[in-house]
Every structure is written in structure tokens, then in C-alpha cells.
Design a protein around this nucleic acid. Structure first.
Lengths: 373, 373
DNA sequence: TCAGGAGGTGGGAGCGCTCCCACTGGAAGC
DNA sequence: GCTTCCAGTGGGAGCGCTCCCACCTCCTGA
């Protein structure tokens, strides 16, 4: 199905076929004069063959020496190292990739309706964590935003062409077009956060429901009885799980949960959601926001409405990103280990690439109490 | 020099040479029985040869058809397309890269002392912009954080091995180790923001000094006479240029510039800088902060000190990122087109890769007046 | 004494693509 | 009628690496 959607032209080059030419060959004049080719100034990178020749060994030996493989005498190994230094040789990663069938790269795909989703500092933290783990495995990070038609097409192409050794998928929504692609690809896939209505084989997630429950329990423990929820997108599992946690906590306390007041994890959506909430339930005295951005938006609306936080309304967020500390008052929030999320995703992917069978992981959250509740 | 620093082992594989094996060959039992190899279930991806065979054409024709090159009859072109569809063929990017000598990827390198630099939402915006432009050129984005020893080593390796078609370099500091590497690499390099004390051939920058000047002029126009500067890192050109702009504006107005109160572009550093400023100059009535993060920190310190913003102290930031609107009061700030910065860097790189000679670009800034000044 | 390793070595066949080039046949030009 | 041209075609040589395998040389131990 996804297959059918892909035009041939898109899979392959689209008209700009002149791209495919050996560089510097087409326009260099044919060598007709008899001058021995002493040196051609725009020198190519030296190849392994040249290293081998200079070191007086075969290409095989040079290759083994380079890769620290056994079966190379000390003398030849040193000769190779010397030649490498003299020639300034650096192995060609593409050639290596072709021979080994390993690209040396892992892709991080962020799904979304439009690219602005990536502006959330959440992803930056994931990347910091993933990069650390990928460095250890000597893999490069390819970053793909599947947040435009073109972007999604390219991700599809990547998945089908094995353009990387593995993929990390994040921020999938319900019925995300990436999901079928992920299922039919032949490369290892790790999910960051579970997709709605699907149980992927490998994922790293955060205890969203547990964190939300703890946050809500905190509000209840502070004597709040009319606690509302400003939800994130409910077509994401994170948005749903956080609402579930909130609801469970209230039910357990014998209080009535509010219906979900949906937003989209952004500050403006939090402000808007808070405004409607205030209009419909002026007596609300506690708010659990699905993330810090929305909590910050709520703070803004409350301030404009003249409500004091936490005196009139207590607010709890989720994420514990920088905004939580910048907000006024600083946000009580559910800390989630975002860098660890990225790191563990990458680790899981690496072990998958190495043929191991890791098990899914759910990372714990922890309530950070500040002034807002 | 940078050459000498690189150990051989690091350039090549370091001991884990078992990585380099044909997958599924080492551990598949040798085919000794006489059964004709009807089908091996874990089927390889189809190759161009198989497509050609199925379409009844030569590999050359199939390749041309795929790349939309001329010299292919309509009939054969269609036959190839049919074969591609039937086989589910997807070109192997690595093989293509080896043959064309083009990797199909561009690298974005973010320099820094430690990876947390990447947490600044600034980079996320750059990436959104760069991705858009890279998509148009059908290039993938490789993201490299040169913010650890390992990270820097890998960037060095990338630069020397032509592991990408080009590089975008950001956040370089004075005497950044990336600078000599960038000079000696053979691939196109575009700088995002000029490095201190170097005039790269190709860069995209923002009018930092102009923006800072405008921001300071705004403070002066509002009647502030004791205007201080909370600086960003002064080993970056952005940090310096913004201070210069501030200073020039004050001198032009006949006022005394404050000595630079240095921070590092983070919120805590802004808070700290504001605290010392307040201790040394309790009568300050205007503050130009080198970016919004630092301005937010300043806001926090002022609030804790009981100073009203903007009544007692007016504050202006720089960047116009989300935090500027979340801050209380919302920040008057210098808007810089960060996505455009990323987009233009990528465009410049693409044109460089295509053999053109683009010219450096300086993007304009614009003052956004909100409540803080 | 000779079999049996084990360390060392290089040849060569890939990996899957692009693109040069030599060749074909039919249309156009004279 | 001939040459000239050009769209169309396929063979084959790369691109720069890895790794299988055959072989060679010592060094063991029986």
C-alpha cells in the first residue's frame, strides 16, 4: 500500500540525472601528451591499494592492519601504519559500507504534522542522549523530520532502501503513516514512546501514567478538590496515558475527574485550554498540565485572569525542561529522564544491530516540587 | 598538526574488527546438499541486475531508466518500471554513493564544550530550516555534536574522509579545534555565524551588532540612562558583536557603556550576571541581555530582588524564541530569523556542492517590542 | 621423521551501482 | 546511392573496500 503511493520518480533520481557523473572526469582534458603523469595537483584521496603498495604489502594485509585484525606480522603492521601516515590515508566510509553492508549510521525520525513539532526542546534532549550512545558504537546520527510530505517520502525511501543500520521512531500519532512503513522495513526499529494502539517489539518509554498519577496525587494531597487536566494531543499515547494517570488518581481519591481539555503540547494551546477551562469551571483549584509548555500557557492565562498561583489555582506540569524553572512561579512538574530516553533508545538499537534481543524499557519519572503547587 | 593528533586506531576500526563481515555469511551453514537453491527465504533486496533481467534489458538501460536519463525507448522504460514495481526494487544508496562519489548527506556540526549546548532551542530552529532546504536537494542531514572528545574525533574523521557531501559548522568559539580541520578538509564548508578572528569564505550570519544596537537604542529612547549589558560568551563572535552593538549605541547617545558582564547564553548565567550587576550598580535602569535565556534569568533575579520590570529596570533580550513570550513580563527582544539561517546555510551548501560560488549572507534582525521594555 | 597446526600472506571475487564507449539500425541530408 | 547523424543498446570497467580461500612457512609434538 505504502508501496503503491511511492512514485518511481521519487524513489530514484527525478530528472536531474546529470548529478551522476564522476567528478572531475567529464571536464578534464584527455591526457594526450606524453608527459609522464608526475603529479596531478587536485589529487584524489589515497586508496588502500596505494597504502599497500607503499608499505610493500598486499591490500589484504593492509586492510587487516587497519582494522586491527589478527594475522598480520608486527613489521608489516608498522609498515602499513607508516604508509597511512605518510599518505594521509583515511578509509573511504562509503566503500567500506558497500563491502560490509553496514552504513555506519542510525536514523532518528521525528514524526509530526508540521516541522514545528521539532521546536520542542524535548527532542534536543533526546538527541543529546542518543548521540552519546551512538558515539560509543561509532554510528553517525541521521536526523529525519517526517513532518512534511517530502519528509515522509524520504523517510519511506530510507526505510525501504536500508539507508541506515537502524531507525529510532518518535512522536508517532494514531494511524501514523510511519507505522506501516516501520512494520514492513527490514531494518531494526526502536520506538521512542509507544504508538497508540500498537505494541512494537522494541521501544523505550517513560512511565507517563505513573508520573501523571503522582502529580495529581500531589495536588490532591495539597487539598485541591477540583482538579482539571490540560491534555496533550490525545492521538498520542503520551497524551492519553497522562490523562489516564490523572483520572486514576482522582478516582482513587474519590474525586471527579474533569473531561479532557485537549491541547497539543504547545504553550499557546495550554493558554487557550486554560481559558476555556476557566470559563466553564471558574471554581477550579488545581490543574494538571500534560507538559511544561502547556503549564506555562496556563500560568499565563491565570495571570491575565488575576488568579494567583498556587494560592487560587495550583499547577503541575510534566517534563521538567528549562521552561519549568523559568516560569513564574517555577513549576512543580514531573521530571522525566529525556536524555536517558534517547540514550536507551540508541543503546537498544545498537544491540539490535549487533544481533542481540533487547527487551523494552520503561523509564521512571519523579515529581519535582517547586512553587506552582 | 590536527593530523598528528589523530591516532591510527581511531581513524580506523579499533579492535572490533569482527564488525566487518558479510552479514549472514559467517554463521550460515555451507551449502553442501544438492538441492537447487530454489529460494532462500531471508531474501536479499533485489538488485539492479535483477530488475534488468526481469525487464529484459541490460543493466545500463535499467540504470538510465531509473535515473530518468535519455537514450531509453519508451517500451523499455516502461518494462523497467514494471520490473521495479514487481520486485519492490529500491536502489542501494551506498552503492550509488560509491559510484557517484556523492554521499547524499550533509553534516551539521555543532561545536561546544559539552553536549548541553545543544539543548538551546536555537539549534532546533536551525535544523528545521536546514532540513527544509536539504529536502529540496534530496540530501540527508547528519547531525554531529562536536562537544566531547569522542565527538570531536568523529567530526575530524568525517571531515577527512569525505563522509558527507558538505558540512555546516556552528557555534565555533575562539581557537576552536574545528577551525583548522575545516580549513584542511576537501569538502565544502559553510559557517553558521562567523568564527572569532577568522573570515571564512562561506557563511551565513545574522546582523548581531545591528540588532544589539537597535535594542539598546530602544532602551535609550525609553529614557534609560544606566543601561548595562549581560553578555554571552565573549569567545564567540555573536557574543562579541552583540556587545559591540550595545556599546556603539550607548556611545552614540552620549552615555557610558558598562563593562561586559559575561555569561554563557544560559538562563542561570543570566540570573547570576544580573545578580552581580545589581550588587555593583544598584542604580541600573536598563539591561540588554545577549539572548532570551539570559534575559529570562535576569528577570528572575530582578523579581527576587523586588525590582519591577519594566518600571524599575527595563530588559531587552535577543533571539525571540518561545521563552520570550513565556517570560513574565513577555520580553522585548531582537528577533532573528533562525529558521532562515538554517535554510540559507543549507542552500549555500547545496549550491557549493553543485559547483557554484555563492556569496556570504547576513540576515537582518528586527526589534519586537513587548512588555519588558 | 612426518603429520598437524597456527601465524602469515596475497590473489581475487565480490558489494551494487554509474557511466564510458563501441556498436547497431534507421532516418535524414546530399 | 552514399555518408552522417543520433537515439538506443549492452558490455565492461571502474568506485574502494572486505573477506574467503589457497598457499606458504615455521614450530610443535608424537
Amino acid at each position: 500500500m505504502a508501496e503503491a503511493e511511492l512514485e518511481l520518480k521519487e524513489l530514484c533520481g527525478d530528472g536531474n540525472w546529470k548529478r551522476y557523473q564522476y567528478p572531475g572526469v567529464a571536464n578534464s582534458p584527455p591526457v594526450t601528451d606524453s608527459r609522464s603523469m608526475a603529479e596531478d595537483p587536485p589529487r584524489r584521496q589515497p586508496t588502500l591499494d596505494e597504502v599497500a603498495e607503499r608499505a610493500g604489502v598486499s591490500r589484504s594485509v593492509a586492510s587487516r592492519a587497519l582494522n586491527n585484525a589478527p594475522h598480520v606480522s608486527r613489521a608489516k603492521r608498522e609498515a602499513v601504519e607508516r604508509a597511512v601516515r605518510q599518505l594521509g590515508y583515511v578509509p573511504n566510509p562509503t566503500a567500506r559500507a558497500l563491502a560490509t553492508q553496514q552504513t555506519g549510521a542510525a536514523a532518528l525520525v521525528v514524526s509530526g504534522e508540521d516541522p514545528s513539532i521539532f521546536a520542542d526542546p524535548f527532542f534536543a534532549q533526546v538527541i543529546v542522549g542518543a548521540t552519546a550512545a551512538l558515539e560509543d558504537a561509532d554510528l553517525h546520527l541521521m536526523l529525519c523530520l517526517a513532518a512534511s510530505d517530502r519528509g515522509r517520502k524520504r523517510v519511506a525511501e530510507l526505510l525501504r532502501s536500508r539507508g541506515a543500520d537502524g531507525v529510532m521512531l518518535m512522536a508517532l500519532r494514531e494511524d501514523d503513516p510511519l507505522l506501516p512503513l516501520a512494520e514492513e522495513t527490514r531494518m531494526p526499529v526502536v520506538f521512542g514512546g509507544r504508538p497508540v494502539g500498537a505494541a512494537p517489539r522494541w521501544y523505550v518509554d517513560v512511565d507517563n501514567a505513573g508520573g501523571a498519577r503522582e502529580a495529581t496525587e500531589h495536588l490532591v494531597a495539597r487539598g485541591r478538590t477540583r482538579v482539571a487536566a490540560l491534555c496533550g494531543r490525545l492521538d498520542t499515547e503520551a497524551g492519553r496515558a497522562r490523562y489516564r494517570g490523572y483520572r486514576d488518581a482522582l478516582l482513587a481519591a474519590g474525586l471527579d475527574p474533569f473531561p479532557p481539555q485537549e491541547g497539543d503540547f504547545t504553550e499557546p494551546s495550554g493558554a487557550a485550554a486554560m481559558a476555556t477551562l476557566l470559563a466553564n469551571h471558574p471554581d477550579v483549584d488545581g490543574v494538571f498540565a500534560a507538559n511544561d509548555n502547556m503549564a506555562a500557557g496556563a500560568l499565563r492565562t491565570l495571570r491575565e485572569a488575576g488568579r494567583l498561583v498556587p494560592d487560587d489555582v495550583a499547577v503541575v506540569g510534566f517534563d521538567d525542561l528549562a521552561v519549568a524553572q523559568i516560569a513564574d512561579p517555577p513549576l512543580t512538574t514531573v521530571h522525566q529522564p529525556i536524555q536517558a530516553l534517547g540514550r536507551e533508545m540508541a543503546r537498544m538499537l545498537v544491540s539490535l544491530v549487533n544481533g542481540q534481543e533487547p527487551t523494552p524499557l520503561i523509564l521512571p519519572t519523579r515529581l519535582v516540587v517547586r512553587a506552582s503547587a
